[in-house]
């Protein structure tokens, strides 16, 4: 039996990038400490704020909600949860009740915003339309753009001061690499622990950004939280290739993910000098903030012969 480096109990995790073994209790304590440190270091939350947390029902967002509820209790913040129901049969319909049940057990108000009600089509239907029209766009493009837009709109309608998402270290490093591969300076520049306030946008915060995906999963499992662990049926494409590459790199060379993140964080101030500032406008179709005449969601919907059906999103 291998023992925890710190307390001598049975080890549950080998944190190879730091050369230490952790037992269940020390892993839980360590994750909670990193979460608090991220909030303090990057000033992600202030006392008395109203925080909306995006909760899918997966391990990351459920862990984030549990961590936030404890933090908000101490800092006198108010927490509400938002789930985007994209309409992915056999996937989201299974995770949504888990999100709802976790929010209920924590006493958090929980709001559901659906693609079907807002856009008139589920993601499954959108993907079928996209295939029929040969748009050559990947399901993650539709899902990512539309989900982000709805999350922002819902958080704003709920009067949130901050929108917390459960992006972990792996998510952030994958996004960095993806934007490198695509040479997308603008999107690369937007990455970071928080996104500054701009008109129409609720500032986003990522308190799990410096916690590896495996540690977030272990935190949820070791705490016995109810989470949805199924794989999204639309997983694939370049995102998956980059994820697999990074996981192989980390397995062979522990600490690689943190090094990529650290390098990016040091380069980020330089990026500000080459990414032009853009003027914020209102989308002609839906009124949401955008840098163009119409927002990306409306542009994607138009390409499919769809449009936003309703402007107020919130339902229970």
């Amino acid at each position: 039996m291998l023992k925890c480096t710190f307390c001598g109990r049975r080890a549950a995790y080998n944190r190879r990038y730091a050369g230490v073994l952790l037992c269940d209790r020390c892993l839980i304590k360590s994750v909670e400490k990193r979460f608090r440190r991220a909030i303090a270091e990057h000033k992600l939350l202030s006392p008395g704020e109203r925080v909306a947390v995006a909760v899918s029902g997966g391990k990351d967002s459920i862990a984030a909600m549990h961590l936030l509820v404890e933090h908000c209790g101490r800092k006198n913040c108010e927490l509400v949860a938002i789930t985007i129901d994209e309409g992915i049969k056999g996937y989201r319909d299974q995770s949504l009740p888990i999100a709802r049940e976790n929010a209920r057990s924590l006493g958090i108000e929980h709001y559901v915003v659906s693609f079907k009600r807002t856009f008139g089509a589920t993601l499954d239907q959108i993907v079928r339309r996209a295939k029929a029209r040969k748009t050559e766009l990947n399901p993650c493009t539709y899902c990512g753009v539309m989900r982000r837009s709805l999350l922002n709109q819902a958080a704003r309608e709920l009067g949130a001061d901050k929108l917390a998402t459960a992006h972990n270290l792996d998510d952030e490093v994958q996004a960095i690499m993806l934007n490198y591969v695509r040479a997308d300076f603008s999107r690369l520049h937007r990455l970071g622990p928080s996104y500054p306030p701009r008109e129409g946008f609720v500032p986003r915060i990522k308190p799990l950004r410096e916690i590896p995906e495996k540690e977030v999963a272990l935190y949820a499992l070791l705490r016995g939280l109810e989470v949805h662990l199924a794989v999204c049926p639309y997983t694939g494409g370049i995102h998956t290739e980059i994820r697999d590459f990074l996981n192989q790199l980390e397995a062979n060379h522990p600490n690689s993910k943190f090094m990529i993140l650290r390098m990016f964080d040091r380069l980020k101030p330089q990026l500000a000098q080459i990414v032009p500032e853009f003027e914020m406008r209102r989308c002609k179709n839906c009124g949401e903030p955008t840098s163009a005449n119409i927002c990306k969601s409306c542009e994607l919907l138009e390409g499919l012969g769809l449009e936003r059906r309703q402007k107020t999103l919130i339902s229970y």
Binding site: G58, K59, D60, P139, C140, C143, D170, D171, E213, K214, A217, L221, H228, L229, A230, V231, C232, Y234, T235, G236, H239, T240, R243, N247
Partner: peptide, 8 residues
């Protein structure tokens, strides 16, 4: 063996 990588 529990797979933990679930997202897209």
């Amino acid at each position: 063996i529990l797979p933990i990588v679930t997202g897209g």
